[in-house]
Simulated scan of single mutants.
Amino acid sequence: MLNKHKNHLFVYGQAGVSMIEVLVSIIILSIGLLGLAGLQTASLTQNHSANFRSTATVMAYSILDSMRANRIEAGAGSYNHAFGGSTPASDTLSGQDVGNWLNELALRLPEGSGSINVDANNRVTVLIQWGDSRGAAAAQQFAMTTRL
């Protein structure tokens, strides 16, 4: 742009971009990309934890369906199992159901284990726990209570 002032000719404007402006824009872009990578990592971690919770829910419904199909043994407490207890004998249907269920928990969930408790009123409490080292806490637990 040209401007005449007292018979002098002045040139205003910029001929190019300075190196400092380029460096500042690269730093701003880098910070934004690092933030985006952090969000992606957190998203993957939470998605993995949610998948484990969904699996625990499906597994709880699975054993409850088996118990409802065999109400007499379930009401008698044949499905009761404590955390860390020995694998039930497979000579009964309830023992086979609980043994298969525990094996599936161990296969589908990291450090997966479960417990089942049927009280005198036929109220069933199913607890499932697993190790979730990628999530917010090291150990997670899912509980479901229902009536047969």
Rank of each mutant, 00 (worst) to 15 (best):
E21L: 11
E21W: 08
E21G: 06
V22C: 05
V22D: 13
L23S: 01
L23F: 05
L23C: 02
V24H: 03
V24N: 05
V24K: 03
V24F: 10
V24D: 06
S25R: 05
I27P: 01
I27F: 07
I27G: 11
S30Y: 02
S30A: 13
S30C: 06
G32K: 00
G32E: 02
G32N: 01
L34K: 02
A37Y: 08
G38W: 10
G38I: 07
L39A: 13
L39G: 14
Q40K: 04
Q40S: 09
A42Q: 13
A42L: 15
S43Q: 07
L44Y: 14
L44A: 15
N47T: 14
H48A: 10
H48K: 06
H48V: 06
H48G: 06
S49E: 05
F52T: 02
R53Q: 14
S54K: 04
S54G: 09
T55P: 03
T55R: 07
T55G: 04
A56Y: 11
A56E: 04
T57W: 14
V58R: 10
V58E: 13
V58Q: 13
V58K: 06
M59D: 03
M59H: 09
M59N: 08
A60T: 07
A60Q: 02
Y61Q: 08
Y61L: 08
Y61F: 12
I63G: 02
L64S: 11
D65V: 10
D65C: 10
D65N: 14
D65R: 06
S66E: 07
S66F: 01
A69R: 12
A69Q: 15
A69H: 06
A69I: 07
N70R: 03
N70Y: 04
N70K: 03
I72K: 09
I72R: 10
E73L: 07
A74Q: 09
G75R: 13
G77E: 08
G77M: 15
G77V: 14
S78R: 06
Y79T: 07
Y79F: 15
Y79K: 11
H81F: 12
H81G: 02
F83W: 07
F83H: 04
G84W: 05
G85Q: 00
T87Q: 10
T87P: 02
T87N: 11
T87D: 08
T87I: 15
P88R: 01
A89V: 15
A89D: 14
A89G: 13
S90E: 12
S90T: 15
D91N: 09
T92V: 08
T92D: 01
L93M: 10
S94W: 00
G95F: 12
D97V: 07
D97E: 12
D97N: 14
G99P: 02
N100K: 14
N100G: 09
N100H: 14
E104C: 15
E104T: 15
E104M: 13
E104L: 14
E104W: 15
L105K: 01
L105M: 06
A106E: 02
A106V: 01
A106P: 00
A106M: 01
L107G: 13
L107K: 10
R108S: 12
L109S: 05
G112R: 00
S113T: 12
S113I: 09
S113C: 04
S113Q: 09
G114R: 05
S115E: 03
N117P: 01
V118Q: 05
D119W: 06
A120N: 11
A120I: 13
